[in-house]
């Protein structure tokens, strides 16, 4: 949803499979964030989600002033990690999906676009073919949600690395 029509919106992009429990953290968070932003009447923010990232997402990245990718994390920091991404040309291999660094590299190579980009990696714990997010991951999602709300309202816009 584009809550306004700015030429260069901020893109919040969640990815994962909601049918695989915590793998859907990114998609769920973006859904909830979009609903919140709509109520806030927020302008200049575009929300999108998909099962995984792929090369065509370079097009959306290239037309954004700033990008926040939201994904589930199998390991790492609890409740979430928020860190700056840089284009990664050295992907040693890929599957049908691509890591966000490679999407940034494609946007740079193909469209000469280098918007600042961050990854919000929300820690998950369960990955079976079930829909409910695990209770602990739900708690992590809530923490990440409040963090991103603050970010979008402007309080975190100057921070590049946060935990």
């Amino acid at each position: 949803m584009d809550t306004s029509s700015p030429a260069q919106p901020l893109l919040v992009y969640g990815y994962g499979n909601p049918g695989r429990q915590d793998d859907g953290l990114g998609v769920r968070l973006v859904e909830e964030l979009e609903a919140w932003a709509h109520k806030q009447g927020m302008r200049g923010v575009v929300f999108d989600s998909n099962y995984q990232l792929n090369a065509e997402d370079a097009l959306a990245v290239a037309s954004s002033r700033e990008v926040i990718f939201v994904d589930a994390a199998v390991e790492g920091v609890e409740p979430f990690e928020f860190r700056r991404l840089v284009p990664g040309r050295q992907i040693s291999f890929s599957t049908h999906a691509m890591p966000p660094e490679s999407i940034l590299a494609l946007a740079e190579e193909l469209y000469n676009a280098t918007p600042p980009a961050w990854l919000l990696a929300v820690r998950g714990y369960a990955w079976e073919v079930q829909e409910p997010i695990s209770p602990q991951a739900r708690s992590n999602l809530d923490a990440a949600f409040h963090f991103l709300c603050d970010w979008l309202l402007g309080s975190g816009n100057t921070a590049e690395d946060k935990r």
């Binding site: 994962g16 695989r20 994390a73 790492g76 998950g124 990955w127």
Partner: peptide
Amino acid sequence: CATHAYGQ
């Protein structure tokens, strides 16, 4: 479709 979560 394996879970693709970051780090795998």
